[in-house]
Design a protein around this nucleic acid. Structure first.
Lengths: 206, 206
DNA sequence: CTGCCATCTGGCAGTGACTGCCTATAATGA
DNA sequence: TCATTATAGGCAGTCACTGCCAGATGGCAG
């Protein structure tokens, strides 16, 4: 019963599959509806039922796709596929520069529409504490997963833990500053500077 | 209820008051009951109702005191009073060393019983993602509040944001490492080393 | 000691997030 | 085209959390 995973489709990765396409389209529709409603009425005032109705799916489906209400804001399609173009570089002598390159690459692959969407999501993330909490943990876990994939044996080491967490912290600090300054400028320099601070250390700062 | 001598006759003006004392005692009783039940049955399997019953209070009271279920784990009495002995030092040339001193002072003021309690709480924090998320946000907010109190005008600056978040990240990394190594050693050296890494920067690390 | 006032605890009822189970339906592979 | 399998939707239930009201309790002036 459970020992029967006959690989319904070993996923040659070339074909997205029709079902998968419909699901992804529905997720986009649902997230778009959710963001609009959250922006207008506030996160807490909008029930999942309303989101489902606006996106023309069943509430059960929203839960199946996103798992939790906060994920309606946090979910990023890019997280689905792109595991990391950074994997090989991470082990390099200078992990900060590797991350910098990865972040740059991520931003470069981003359209204007993508950036607009991110702005809306970040605004909501920092407007709703529950969402911010979930997003922070989400970031930690993504970061830990990358670290574990690159250096499986060093995962528990103190240096690794501190670096991973400090990196996420610096990144979130940059994101938060971007939000606090009303998304005026391009966020990339912020992240860049955050990483530089991390690399140089805080001995003389402030 | 039990051995609680009211006798507030010779009480100086600075006394917390009898009601406040009863409340604090109840909070300790509730947290103790909660931790025990969570450790035995798992966080999700224990309803607030059960915690309330074990602590001999009404469920409504648990919510009134702790606000959210995760706070039953996160709440730390020390947070109530001690705002920060670090306030004056923070603005010094070397903020990392100021924090190091503050952390040391915090640990020094800690009894063995305190440390045991913290171990239990940290174990639960990292066993339950929802609690970890809440604790992380809680840490961020505490850190931001300190920063805002010390340097009200620099709060939104990128450097401040990055430093505050990276500091919390490093601290949480040390805490997590302590947990991953089964709380074997004294945690202070971990935090110490985390702060050193933060101060020196990560250019050559790993 | 006593009665009055402020505050607090507890019970009640309601909202809404989230889950397990089952059925209808749509996609996939032969 | 047909059999198989994955998937969306509906139903019912649990539980975290909140506002509201009544009863109890501590604090205090007379």
């Amino acid at each position: 019963m459970d020992t029967d995973p006959p690989a319904p489709s070993a996923a040659p990765a070339g074909t997205p599959g029709l079902q998968a396409r419909k699901k992804l389209a529905a997720m986009h529709r649902i997230q778009e509806a959710a963001l609009g409603l959250f922006e207008e009425h506030g996160f807490d005032a909008v029930a999942i039922e309303a989101v489902a109705a606006a996106a023309e799916v069943a509430p059960r489906t929203v839960y199946r796709y996103f798992g939790a209400k906060e994920m309606l804001v946090i979910w990023d399609e890019a997280d689905e596929h792109a595991s990391s173009p950074l994997t090989p570089q991470f082990a390099a002598a200078d992990p900060v520069d590797a991350l910098r390159a990865a972040v740059r690459a991520g931003f470069a692959a981003m359209s204007d529409a993508d950036l607009r969407l991110i702005r809306r999501r970040v605004a909501l993330i920092y407007r709703v504490p529950a969402v911010e909490a979930a997003f922070t943990l989400h970031s930690y876990e993504k970061s830990r997963a990358i670290a574990a994939a690159v250096a499986p044996d060093a995962g528990d080491r103190l240096d690794t833990q501190v670096f991973v967490h400090a990196f996420v912290g610096a990144f979130l600090g940059a994101l938060r500053h971007w939000h606090l300054t009303d998304f005026d400028a391009n966020p990339l320099p912020f992240v860049d500077r955050a990483l530089t601070l991390l690399a140089q250390g805080f001995t003389d700062t402030d």
